[in-house]
């Protein structure tokens, strides 16, 4: 019978026993409720060994590929090391700064080279550690399959401790540390014909830039509509790259949007909030896959609206950029 490792202890499963039963029999308490593989209260993650498919039924695909499972219906088929869902399974990794370049007046792109192989999905995020210990989260915009260096997009905010330091002091060759990857907002292959809507505000474009290129790289054939919203036209970046991607891929559509206040200089951009413009253009989202990144209010409201417009909750992937209370910093916007 398989052995389960949990919190550095080994537990022998009896024949036909679930992970929940086994741990409980050994006096380990795991939160649970329905105990029928439905409510996900006993959600755990396998960090070694693969959970059986039955134990993952009904979980979002981004959770499945990260080996999440429900302990109450998981009869392990092989040795597994497991942790409670949400446990931190990442470790610190040294990175070297390879480059830094402006993307707009206040947005920088930085490139990092990890000291050892680093596995991640475009759209996930990492925590970046400054030598003095200051930490901020940034989304990964690069593609691991292309062996690109890790790419982060940073908005420099007045008073943002990390972002002003990155702009003014961090230089090529500096050694920093990262921890990650974290997050469930990324592309999972398997439904190449499904239409995809992506809505991002500000540097919410960073994960979406990774996700769009990842989907195209993996041969996605359904339509891919990207709406990028900014208060002003200055905040629209990667415009030329996105237009080039549009020319190269018939199924990719890029829609930059600028708020009414910035209408005078909007150029080609549509006037209006990106989420509202998208919903007006695509009012029926039944069977669409949705990615939402950026301002937390936009993400929360659009998640509900997309669901009410017909998208299945299991097809909605969201990454709200939460602000740091101390200096108005946030994931990517810091």
């Amino acid at each position: 019978m398989p052995v389960i490792t949990y919190d550095k202890q080994l537990y022998q499963c009896a024949d036909g026993e679930t992970v929940l039963q086994c741990l409980r029999r050994h006096g380990v308490s795991i939160p649970s409720s329905c105990e029928s593989g439905v409510c996900q209260t006993c959600l755990m993650q396998g960090i070694r060994g693969k959970p059986p498919a039955l134990a993952q039924q009904g979980l979002k695909d981004t959770l499945q590929v990260q080996h999440y499972f429900m302990a109450c219906v998981c009869v392990p088929e092989e040795e597994m090391e497991v942790v409670l869902a949400g446990a931190d399974i990442t470790h610190l990794l040294e990175v070297e700064v390879l480059g830094k370049e402006p993307l707009s007046d206040d947005i920088l792109r930085i490139y990092l080279k990890p000291a050892e192989p680093f596995d991640y999905k475009p759209g996930q995020f990492i925590n970046l550690y400054r030598p003095d210990g200051l930490v901020r989260s940034f989304s990964l915009a690069s593609l691991p399959q292309r062996e690109e260096p890790l790419e982060l997009q940073v908005r420099v905010l007045p008073g943002g401790r990390m972002s002003t330091w990155i702009q003014d002091e961090m230089s090529v060759g500096d050694k920093l540390a990262i921890k990650g990857p974290v997050g469930d907002c990324f592309y999972v292959p398997g439904k190449p014909q499904q239409n995809i809507l992506l809505v991002g505000t500000g540097t919410g474009l960073a994960p979406l830039w990774g996700i769009v290129r990842d989907a195209l790289d993996q041969g996605h054939t359904g339509q891919i509509h990207l709406y990028h919203g900014s208060y002003t036209a200055d905040g629209l970046y990667l415009v030329d790259e996105l237009r080039a991607l549009e020319r190269a891929h018939q199924n990719f559509i890029y829609m930059p949007c600028v708020d009414e206040a910035g209408a005078a200089e909007a150029g080609d951009a549509t006037i209006g909030r990106a989420d509202l413009v998208a919903l007006t253009a695509i009012p029926d989202l039944k069977s669409w896959r949705i990615y939402l990144c950026g301002h937390p209010d936009m993400v929360a409201v659009m998640k509900k609206k997309a669901f009410l417009a017909g998208a299945s909750l299991s097809d909605i992937y969201a990454d709200p950029f939460v602000y740091s209370a101390t200096d108005n910093a946030s994931k990517a916007d810091s």
Partner: peptide, 9 residues
Amino acid sequence: EKQAAKQKS
């Protein structure tokens, strides 16, 4: 997501 899981139960 949590609410949907509860409703499924």
